[in-house]
Simulated scan of single mutants.
Amino acid sequence: MKPDKDRPSTWKKYDADNCSRCRANCCAMPVEVKASDLVRLGVASQDEVDNSIKKLAKRLKKEKIITSYREGTEFFMITQKANSDCYFLDSRTRLCTVYERRPDTCRQFPAQIGARVGFCPVEWK
């Protein structure tokens, strides 16, 4: 059965070696991030975070970096391209353009977080 990012029951057991050959299906899933991730990514300053999260969210929405901010959880939703790819994924190479600065969500998926912890929607190139 072909892995389907929207059906965790089809995912394969996670193995870090899979990442080098994968089509980056996980990078076509919604990504929620915290303010600290936005600072690490270089799209926000610590001053903006400290002074007004709402103003920061408004700016990042206008710049189309995020699609939403939920005040209750303090999560920002990273924008997805028309094909569902993450804003930071290179569509041609299928590599993350901010890998060294990637959000904690991406760093921890799927080994520590996700719809099915320990499994991923790996699909070979």
Rank of each mutant, 00 (worst) to 15 (best):
M1W: 03
M1I: 03
M1E: 09
M1Q: 02
K2R: 09
D4P: 07
D4R: 02
K5Y: 14
D6E: 12
P8M: 13
W11I: 04
K12F: 05
K12P: 00
Y14L: 02
N18I: 15
S20C: 05
R21W: 00
N25E: 15
N25F: 05
N25Y: 11
N25K: 07
C27A: 06
C27M: 06
C27R: 08
M29I: 06
P30S: 08
E32M: 11
E32R: 03
E32F: 10
E32P: 00
V33K: 02
K34R: 14
K34F: 11
A35K: 11
V39K: 07
R40K: 15
R40G: 01
L41V: 09
L41I: 14
G42L: 08
V43P: 10
A44V: 10
Q46I: 08
Q46A: 14
Q46P: 00
Q46E: 15
V49P: 09
D50L: 13
S52Y: 10
S52L: 04
S52C: 13
I53T: 15
I53R: 12
K54S: 14
L56V: 12
A57H: 09
A57R: 10
K58A: 13
K58F: 13
K62H: 10
I65A: 08
I66R: 01
I66N: 01
T67M: 01
T67Y: 02
R70T: 11
R70Y: 09
R70I: 03
E71G: 12
E71V: 04
G72W: 00
T73A: 06
T73N: 02
E74C: 03
E74S: 11
F75G: 00
M77V: 12
M77H: 02
M77N: 06
I78H: 02
Q80L: 13
K81H: 12
S84A: 11
S84D: 14
C86E: 05
F88Q: 06
F88P: 04
S91L: 03
S91Y: 00
T93F: 09
L95I: 07
V98L: 03
Y99H: 15
R101Q: 13
R102P: 13
P103Y: 07
R107K: 15
F109R: 03
P110Q: 05
A111H: 13
Q112A: 14
Q112S: 12
I113K: 07
I113H: 01
I113V: 15
A115N: 07
A115V: 06
V117Y: 01
V117T: 13
G118I: 07
G118A: 09
P121T: 04
V122Y: 15
V122A: 12
E123W: 10
E123V: 14
W124P: 02
W124M: 08
K125Q: 09
K125E: 09
K125D: 11
